[in-house]
């Protein structure tokens, strides 16, 4: 019945084949990228060595948006075509995305201390990311709030799509709110033009993070499938006992 839509066993084999192609390049890119970022790129003329936080902060921000987009897409696929692996993929992606978002907020805060002399500034970008973080938390909380897991994943899928439509509106509002309330003297994160010696490690980190996400996603999907299988087995057992 479910096989007509997707075959978990086939997916499992595909995942096993793909895994090393994601995991190894991810590891290599992140290590090499970090080396360039920490030792082999120029310090900023204004910010000094603190600018190196950017090499984690900016890719983490990219990932925060990228993962949410992927969640919304797989949620839509799950709702429209009732593809069971699609919901599973959204479910697997959410905590990873939330972690990237948290890393982005944390590094933003660490960056803010030397730059602005305070751990938190209501900067437009950071505030938008904070709200995105709440959207992730809402998704995960809704997913786990029901006794019937199927209900949780479908409701969370609807929420992911609503959130996705809202992200640009929130971003626009927060940008607007920020220009209204903040004097222009605040240094923007995107302030200085980026030199290519900084751009290359930044892209390496970005691609590395993306591949790392793919590897982690496959791993988590497999874990969730195993958990579901265990649940199915105990349920079958229960059913057999009541039938006897």
């Amino acid at each position: 019945m479910i096989q007509q839509y997707a075959n978990p066993a086939r997916f499992n084999r595909l995942a096993a084949t793909l895994m090393p192609w994601f995991a190894w390049p991810a590891g290599i890119l992140i290590v090499v990228g970090l080396y360039f970022a920490l030792f082999n790129s120029p310090p900023d003329y204004q910010q000094g060595d603190t600018v190196r936080i950017m090499y984690v902060h900016v890719p983490a921000a990219w990932m925060a948006l990228f993962v949410y987009t992927s969640m919304a897409l797989s949620s839509a696929v799950g709702l429209i075509w009732k593809h069971p692996l699609a919901h599973l993929s959204a479910q697997a992606a959410a905590p990873i995305g939330a972690c990237f978002t948290f890393v982005c907020l944390l590094t933003g805060s660490l960056w803010g201390k030397p730059m602005w002399g305070t751990w938190w500034v209501w900067d437009a970008r950071l505030t938008s990311v904070l709200i995105l973080f709440f959207l992730y938390l809402g998704f995960m909380a809704l997913q786990n709030a029901f006794d019937d897991p199927a209900r949780g994943e479908r409701s969370a899928a609807i929420l992911a799509i609503i959130g996705f439509i809202n992200v640009p509106i929130i971003k626009f509002s927060v940008d607007w709110w920020n220009t209204l309330h903040q004097p222009a003297s605040v240094v923007k994160m995107s302030g200085p033009a980026i030199h290519s010696s900084m751009l290359i490690p930044l892209f390496m980190m970005g691609i590395g993070f993306t591949l790392y996400f793919c590897a982690l996603l496959l791993l988590r999907m497999k874990t969730l499938m195993l958990a579901r299988r265990a649940r199915g087995m105990s349920m079958a057992q229960l059913h057999q006992q009541t039938a006897e």
């Binding site: 019945m1 479910i2 978990p8 499992n12 199915g232 087995m233 079958a236 059913h239």
Partner: peptide, 10 residues
Amino acid sequence: AEEDVWEGVT
């Protein structure tokens, strides 16, 4: 009949 759709996942 009981069927285990996640059977191939190991």
